[in-house]
Design a protein around this nucleic acid. Structure first.
Lengths: 214, 214
DNA sequence: GTCTATAAACAGATAGAC
DNA sequence: GTCTATCTGTTTATAGAC
């Protein structure tokens, strides 16, 4: 997966832009865009406000860069395409496929940068159409489309029963996980334990598998 | 259910407080607390900023009143208690119970005031521990506890199979609906159609019922 | 690319007349 | 309970020296 390191090298001398972006992500994810001032961001970086404007046109331009960072990371997220998916599913059963998917998901949400941007998207989704669009397209639609394709293949291979459409199954599988993700964002915000939540995901995979596998 | 009318009578002469609250709910739900100024709120009401301070101590006091309004409404939401639940479930099967629950839920989210406050809670949940607490307590925990009690009774009555605990079943039933609720808040924000979403809830009820009823 | 200085608008909140 | 007037600090952003 693409990350901040690829897009904004830390090692190079001119890394102020990157440091501004990191500080902004930190602060926006805590208090939201509107409640954070350019002062606070540049103070955290250790530069004056005016210096920020050498790197970003406006305060909104910082937010826009955060959005673009998220979409770049999502597009390079390494989700298998149709052909790769077919190859994988040839020798994988439903439960293994879902468990592997969860492990990948877990590694994703262990990336603090990504989790912070997720929080920002959640905070800004009503105020900002750009955030709304990213959530509906990259998070909701992207995930459901992928699962729908996978389940359609698994039905073809008779590894899953076809009483329900791949879409209904994708929703039944993924929507509880979306809610758990939301809960995860809230719990980790207060530094609370998420072990029980992880167990719930495993329960859910087991429950789902039990009823729909052939 | 308790509403604004009970808590802040519209008919009485001194209804400025109520009008401030309504304007604030409108604006906060669109842009979030931090991005809305007292100026904007009072302009919408048609009074000067200083007049606001005769009704609320600070800007934050308005937000706090909104939270208190929500919890009052939730506490008077008419969810049946243990005894009432038992009486209802004596002569109701699982599918009917869930369908009736959905109809009540639908009427709830047709209340624009409640939907706006829900959005405010979503926006403020990271910045504001009060919002976080309301979401975890009133929305997540409250709903799951209620369903868990109901499913436990249905299992006792042998109307539901007991391969899974009432808690797992409550989560499997409710968590997809939480996600759909979130999607609903986003779609209605842009005035988009929610019919497909409603179908999804029906599909979900049908899917869930098929696998767990006895 | 960073700094100091400053602009111009806006923020939340208060005092006191009516 | 609403108004006008005002206070004090903060906001985003720019100009120009180094």
């Amino acid at each position: 997966m693409l990350g901040l390191d690829q897009l904004f090298p830390a090692k190079e001398s001119g890394n102020t832009k990157r440091r501004i972006l990191e500080a902004a992500i930190d602060l926006f994810s805590l208090n939201g865009y509107s409640a954070v001032s350019v002062r606070e961001i540049t103070k955290q970086v250790g530069i004056k406000e005016s210096a920020m404007y050498n790197h970003f046109k406006t305060k909104d331009d910082i937010l826009d860069s955060i959005y673009r960072l998220f979409t770049s990371m999502s597009e390079g997220n390494g989700l298998p395409d149709e052909a790769q998916l077919k190859a994988i599913l040839e020798h994988t059963d439903l439960e293994t496929f879902l468990k592997q998917g969860f492990e990948i998901y877990k590694r994703t949400i262990e990336n603090p940068l990504l989790v912070k941007i997720w929080r920002i998207l959640n905070i800004e989704q009503y105020r900002d159409p750009r955030a709304r669009d990213i959530i509906l397209t990259y998070i909701y639609k992207g995930t459901i489309d992928f699962l729908e394709a996978a389940f359609a293949l698994l039905q073809e291979q008779r590894k899953m029963n076809d009483e329900y459409s791949p879409k209904v199954l994708a929703i039944e599988y993924q929507y509880p996980i979306f809610s758990m993700m939301t809960e995860y964002l809230l719990l980790t915000f207060d530094g609370k334990e998420t072990d029980e939540l992880e167990d719930r995901v495993r329960s859910h995979i087991q429950y789902f598998t039990k009823y729909v596998k052939n």
